[in-house]
Structure formats: C-alpha cells, structure tokens
C-alpha cells in the first residue's frame, strides 16, 4: 500500500518546494478577524517532518555525547595508560571520504532538478559508494583496535568509544539502506517529474549523519 499523504486544503500544493519560497500564510496565519483564505504552508510536510525528526536525533546524540564528556572530563588520564591510541590520521582521511559523499548527494539533487535521471542515479550511487567505503574503513579500524585489546569492556575508554562510534555507524548503515532504496526508485524514474519528497528526505538525512561525524570525530578522537 502506498502511503496516502493528505496535503493541506486545495490551492495549497505547490510543485514540491522548488523555486521561490511561498508567500507567508494568510487567513490561516495568525491574523484573526480577517476573512479566511486558503493557507500556504511555509514548508511542505515531508521537509517539516524531517526537521523535527532530526531534532529528535540530535537530542539522542546529545545524550550520548554529553554522557561521554562527563566520563571523559572526570578521568584523570585520557586515554588511560596501557590503552591503544585511536588512529587519528586515518580516521581524519576517512572523515574527508564521508564529507565528499555529502557533496555527491548535493550533486545528485542538482541532477534531479536538471531532470537528469542518469546523473541522479550515478551520483546517488557515488554517495552510497563513499558511505560504504567509510564504513569499511571504520570496520577495519575496529578490527585493529580489538586486536590491540581495546574492547567494550575495557573501561570507560573502550565503552564510550565503541558505543558512540558504533551507534553513528549504525545510523550511517541505515542512511545507506535508505539511499539504496531511493536509488532503486530513482532508477525507475521516480522523483523526476513526480513529487520528490522521499528523495529530499533521504538527502536531508544523509547530510545529517555526515554532519554528525565531524562532531564525534573531534569529541572522541581529537579532544
């Protein structure tokens, strides 16, 4: 069953949010007394919902990161003695990989605006590829660290590291799957002249998980 999404009343729907921003709502806005007129939402449902979704995600990571900082600042020595150091340089490069994937996503969106299906598919593919590469490198690093004896149970150091990075990785994985599905739909010509809501939502989420990473990198690896 395809999601039936009911938009606000007639006249409201614009071609999905492209071009000039819509006029601020009239009637339905906060001007009491004036004759009711159809409202024009500032943001279409999908983008609005994504905004709030990211708000929730942010609070989730805020919880994790602040918890990490509490332990980190309490510890006299960080990283604790006899614990392997984190691969700062390699991960730095990996960070660049992830950031590039965001660029690829932006390009993909531009391709869609240009009604360029091949380009859209190719660039979404590139995004996914870079994301996958990032995960692969992270996975390799984990294998190394485990081999050097840094485990979940080796104190706050290991615990916080694997929890934070792991949960972010899980998010990237999820976003990756989402891009995959979107890519499939794009290949079948969706989004080009139909509504592009799902595609845009996917892009927004991708940018979010990417933007999240530098924060974690600075907090966990550098700080």
């Amino acid at each position: 069953m395809s999601p039936v999404v009911l938009e606000a009343p007639p006249l409201v729907r614009r071609a999905n949010g492209r071009g000039v921003p819509p006029r601020p709502p009239t009637g339905g806005g906060d001007d009491d007394g004036r004759e009711p007129a159809p409202r024009r939402p500032r943001l279409d449902n999908v983008r609005l919902a994504m905004m709030f979704f990211l708000g929730a995600e942010t609070m989730f990571f805020a919880g994790l990161v602040s918890a990490f900082l509490v332990l980190r600042l309490a510890a006299p020595l960080w990283p604790p003695p006899l614990q392997p150091r984190l691969p700062v340089a390699a991960t730095g490069l990996n960070t660049l990989v992830l950031l590039t994937s965001s660029v690829a996503m932006i390009a993909a969106m531009r391709a869609r605006r240009g009604r360029n299906r091949a380009g859209l598919v190719r660039r979404l593919g590139l995004t996914a590829l870079l994301g996958a590469l990032f995960l692969a490198v992270q996975g390799y690093e984990w294998a190394q660290l485990l081999h050097y004896g840094l485990t979940l149970s080796s104190g706050a150091y290991g615990a916080t590291f694997y929890t934070l990075i792991g949960i972010h990785a899980a998010h990237v994985l999820g976003a990756l799957a989402w891009v995959g599905v979107t890519l499939g739909l794009a290949a079948r010509g969706r989004f080009l002249d139909g509504p592009a809501g799902p595609l845009r939502a996917c892009a927004i989420y991708w940018h979010f998980v990417v933007a999240l990473w530098p924060v974690l990198y600075v907090a966990v690896y550098l700080a």
Partner: peptide, 18 residues
C-alpha cells in the same frame, strides 16, 4: 509526535489560525 506537529503546523483548515 512528528506526525502531530507536522499536522498541526501544516494542515489546519482555512481560517484556523494558531
């Protein structure tokens, strides 16, 4: 909650100001 918020912001009937 995402659903509630979006609905209240975007789907009010004509004249239903905040």
């Amino acid at each position: 909650s995402i659903n509630y918020i979006t609905t209240i912001i975007n789907m009010r009937a004509p004249g239903m100001s905040l």
